[in-house]
Write a protein that binds this DNA or RNA. Structure first.
Lengths: 159, 159
DNA sequence: TATTTGTTCGCACGAATTGCTAATTAGAAA
DNA sequence: TTTCTAATTAGCAATTCGTGCGAACAAATA
């Protein structure tokens, strides 16, 4: 995580200013391991800086992504989530509660796609889907209802 | 791809009927390798069946997902895309034009995430990002404009 | 034929995110 | 330190992608 000074420098080198709003959002991102959504961050930010606007949160997140200081995670489920972890890592998603966790996976760089010979690949992302332990426990025979929505679709609609 | 008869059977076994709308959408899905969005399919369907509603397209797609005959792809970029390919495969995305292509990748099942020991993993998805050959060609020094949106964000907003 | 069950369709609604712009501010320059 | 101005914020309108709902239809059943 960038120090306040480095963050300021980063902004400056991008022709931008380090405002209190930006500083706060950056800090909140790094305090939160849960891959928060913009709305979530807005709620947290509002607590510490009443009056901050949701628009500013969205804007700041976009900028950070643009400056390479933040990664967007889009695994379905409605809102985009953000990950300040810039290191080499991947994600596991609980199909039940939707939590996303960072994981390390070895051997990813060795994967080769066949059928994309004409692509110049720049990045590879791996997403594991499963059920976390706490959801596993509370997983009664509710699974029965055959006409239930698929987890993916549930994620889409549940808010 | 299911034959018309098998498709009807599938629907029947789910307590559903194979209507002309459903038949058409299923067919269009399998004629299209581009992982279309609901809107795209709606456009194509409208051409052959004027009056079909967008609502029906969404509904039909959800049903197919639910019945396991269709896969949702959510790789950011705004709208959900659909893939009728049920086989074991993964995807490459062109960060420039947004096209998605199916690819085969060996060794995926051997990947093990560390940091998710308490998860029961059920699926693994790999997404490669890169630039396709046609975009590579038309990729002039336009890359210069440092303040340009990141590809991911562009995908989000461009429609 | 009457009834039940499943479908389609259109419209209203909702969530997530962006567009626009007037008012404000950070920070470089004087 | 004060000045100056490009950058930024706030906030509301507008958009995009979907979903909920109810009425009109259609098809299978009794």
């Amino acid at each position: 995580m960038l120090s306040p000074t480095d963050l300021a420098a980063k902004y400056r080198s991008n022709g931008r200013k380090l405002t209190p709003q930006r500083k706060l959002i950056f800090q909140l991102l790094h305090e939160n391991e849960m891959h928060p959504t913009a709305e979530l961050l807005f709620a947290e930010a509002s607590a510490q800086m009443p009056g901050i606007s949701l628009r500013t949160v969205y804007q700041t997140l976009s900028e950070l992504v643009e400056m390479g200081e933040l990664q967007m995670i889009d695994i379905g489920g409605g809102a985009t989530r953000f990950d300040p972890n810039l290191g080499d890592h991947h994600h596991v998603v609980c199909v039940d509660c939707g939590q996303i966790r960072d994981v390390h996976v070895s051997g990813v760089s060795a994967l080769r796609p066949s059928g994309a010979e004409d692509f110049v690949i720049s990045e590879v992302g791996v997403v594991f889907q499963g059920v976390c332990s706490s959801c596993e426990k509370s997983r009664v025979k509710t699974v029965k209802s055959s006409r239930a929505k698929s987890p993916a679709l549930q994620a889409k609609s549940s808010k």
